[in-house]
Amino acid sequence: MNAFRFLGDMTHLFSVLVLLLKIYATKSCSGVSRKTQELYMVVFVARYMDLFTDYISLYNSVMKVVFITSSAAIVWCMRRHPQVRRTYDRDQDTFRHVVLVAASFVLALIFNERFTFREICWAFSIYLEAVAILPQLVLLQRSRNVDNLTGQYVLFLGAYRAFYILNWIYRYFTEGHTSRWIPWIAGLVQTALYADFFYYYFLSWKNNVKLELPA
């Protein structure tokens, strides 16, 4: 474990807590893409299957349980909670996220570390995570008013994988030069997708104005 990775995990955890706070405190999920939350739930289930087979550390196992249960809780809230589900922007959250799932799965069948069920699921989860934010970014561009908590949620979510990239660089130079193309390339794509959001978020912060993404 190195500082970059720990910072990344904490930023990731924080993004989930911010989203849970927003939904719980305001009893509203306006501006939040349910499709992105569903994709993240698939990412965590597909990647953390080894939760019951390989024990790596208490930290590792606890964080996996937290990510799976929190993403499931958010999806449940947006689908079933009587007050929250009413505030879901159904007609704005129109990204065809099934395409992302299919494309990631095909990619995982072609590019994986070993053609085994677990490795293909792992690669699938890495590819899917890289693009899972797309429905949320599209929704942000559509819903003009981005409330602070939703903006902070996306900001922390983008920052977490950026910290992971620093972690991979650090590990490459300190733990023997093993190349891990799959997470590296996917992580770069994932962080690049946030580039324009980071840019407009920074502008809104600098000029102290509401965050507005250009359509």
């Binding site: 790596i56 590792n60 792992w122 023997g176 093993t178 891990r180 997470p183």
Partner: peptide, 10 residues
């Protein structure tokens, strides 16, 4: 086993 085998990252 090698790092690549053991997925120790989240």
């Amino acid at each position: 086993d090698s790092y690549a085998e053991k997925k120790d990252e989240l």
